[in-house]
Write a protein that binds this DNA or RNA. Structure first.
Lengths: 338, 338
DNA sequence: CTGAAAGCGCTTACAG
DNA sequence: CTGAAAGCGCTTACAG
């Protein structure tokens, strides 16, 4: 059943039926009711392509998978995507996932030209991420989950990574720790740089050193957490507390702790950033992990919302949000062993 | 730049330019060359919606996120999706992700009516999954990653879960184990049922019991792995070996082992199913975990391939693949302690 | 080998 | 409040 058939059935013009369906105010109440009922009866759905062609709007937002980025390997991305998809389906928008194997710039350029999305979502940007300038040049609306340090003006939603790790570090200092290690993602990612800055600022604010030997950055896998922690434990003056940028790094750190005879929550303190991954909950581990928490699902919802506003012509300079991050205190964080 | 402008620039009709671009054989070689060069120069890309409308093909395949299914919470899904996206982008197809909040059937129905996808992908079906019959009724091509036990005929790609867990169980029996526990997903998922069957078949083939007390099924989280393992360890005759349906369940089981004074690879054996999740690699844990392995990324690639063939009119009854699963022997699997 | 024209199924000025 | 008609940007019989 298409619009033509539906309107013929109703004895109305396509114009009127289309207007009734799309909620235009000038349609008579009785007419609208008839149209809506018929549409329901016949399960009429406007053809997406036709509507897109006529309106010039794609009714979709896009996300690009990049094999160079960690996102592909990042299980947490699923949760973000679910948030995006949920929000989009509320307003009958699609979300379109592309994969950039190799030529990432080319993929973005193609998406921009083909006009199959109204806006693009960028995740986990690097500090000098070139994608933003490129997409702006192509006139493609975009919203960034995270930030860059490029000085460009663009819509974004980020969490307060600097503040979160500042707060976490300060807590550890207040508990008496003086040597606090940081297991982080590679610093080319802005969120990692921000977390490093928060850690450093908290230490120097208390007159403590933030030596490079106490800081490690690598893809956030269990194994890298293990390796980095082992490295820190082998220092002549090893840390008594660790900050981990992800639950996976924390798992690896906990393994390293066990193997070196440390007991988390006794003679080693741990704080991990928790993205809300459901398969591993920090509160149910032994001991329960202190975390900095921000729901990545909620971020996905909000980012999609912003993207769709942009697609509808919202001011791209207006959207800039930095969400606070909770520090959730649990058993993994104690004063240093005497 | 659109087709009209491009053809005017070339002094050709839209027809010819369109045919040249789409590789139709009747176009003169010189003409084709000119057209291709001009298209390249002007970075011409056909408008996706217009093409879809004209051809009636959406050029996209769809995946529905369901909050009822574990897939939403399943980090491994990212990897599957990446495989799908990679394959689709090879042939310039889109992948469209929808979210079914609440009314899952309604979401599928809408997708079918709106014609924005040519085929649908179903993941982790339950044994009596109703979605397949529904989509077949709507005339929507689909391919299932996994199987049902409905007896319906549909295209699918599955891994040999029964065989994998049969093989793993047999290995443990051969090593001398007599009490082998199974930490599984809920049995309403077909893959869980198949794994349970493989476990049971191996045990009974050797005249061993497969008592329900040794089998647990729940969402595959670390915590549930911990809980189920704790439960098994409290039995009067506890298992000396465990089979885990996911790396997360295995992590929980390892934690339970530690807390009850067990040492994996010494007085407790462990085999986990590995989907190839990059954030936690079984081979780098302590001890390295024996696994049944099958790449979920590769499955995503192949499933997308099948879906696109179907969209192009391939025979839906022809595609049915069951991939073998490797058993990778590592340090977590030893004979029972004397 | 090339082109004029119809058509895909919508939306939306414009007219009444 | 309703409708006839043009147009969105492609593809594809049909004709030559």
């Amino acid at each position: 059943m298409n619009l033509k058939e539906l309107s013929q059935h109703l004895g109305l013009s396509q114009t009127t039926v289309s207007r009734a369906l799309n909620g235009f105010p000038e349609v008579g109440e009785a007419t609208r009711k008839r149209v809506l009922e018929a549409a329901e009866t016949f399960q009429y759905r406007p053809n997406a392509s036709a509507r897109k062609l006529a309106t010039g709007r794609a009714g979709a937002i896009g996300i690009v998978f990049s094999s160079e980025r960690n996102m592909l390997l990042d299980p947490i991305f699923t949760d973000f995507l679910a948030g995006v998809a949920t929000q989009c389906s509320r307003s009958d928008n699609d979300v379109l996932v592309s994969s950039a194997q190799g030529d990432e710039a080319g993929t973005y350029r193609r998406l921009a030209r083909v006009r199959s999305v109204d806006a693009l979502l960028l995740s986990s940007p690097t500090i000098d991420d070139p994608r933003i300038a490129m997409l702006q040049r192509l006139g493609m609306p975009l919203v960034v989950h995270g930030r860059t340090q490029t000085g460009l003006n663009y819509p974004y939603l980020d969490i307060d990574n600097e503040g979160a790790f500042h707060k976490a570090t300060t807590l550890l200092i207040d508990l008496g720790h003086r040597r606090i290690g940081l297991l982080n993602e590679n610093l080319r990612f802005t969120f990692a740089t921000h977390r490093s800055q928060g850690w450093r600022r908290a230490l120097t604010a208390r007159g403590l050193a933030a030596p490079p030997e106490l800081e490690g950055g690598a893809r956030m896998t269990e194994e890298n957490g293990y390796r980095m922690a082992r490295g820190l434990f082998e220092l002549s003056d090893p840390p008594t507390a660790l900050l981990c940028s992800s639950i996976f790094l924390a798992l690896g750190a906990m393994r390293a702790a066990r193997e070196t005879g440390r007991i988390v929550g006794k003679n080693l303190s741990l704080i991990a950033h928790d993205d809300g991954l459901d398969a591993i909950r920090p509160e149910t581990l032994t001991p329960a992990l202190t975390t900095t928490f921000s729901s990545i699902h909620a971020a996905g919802v909000r980012v999609a919302e912003i993207a769709m506003a942009l697609a509808n012509g919202a001011d791209p300079t207006a959207a800039a949000e930095i969400w606070p991050v909770d520090l959730v205190f649990r058993g993994s964080t104690v004063p240093p062993a005497p």
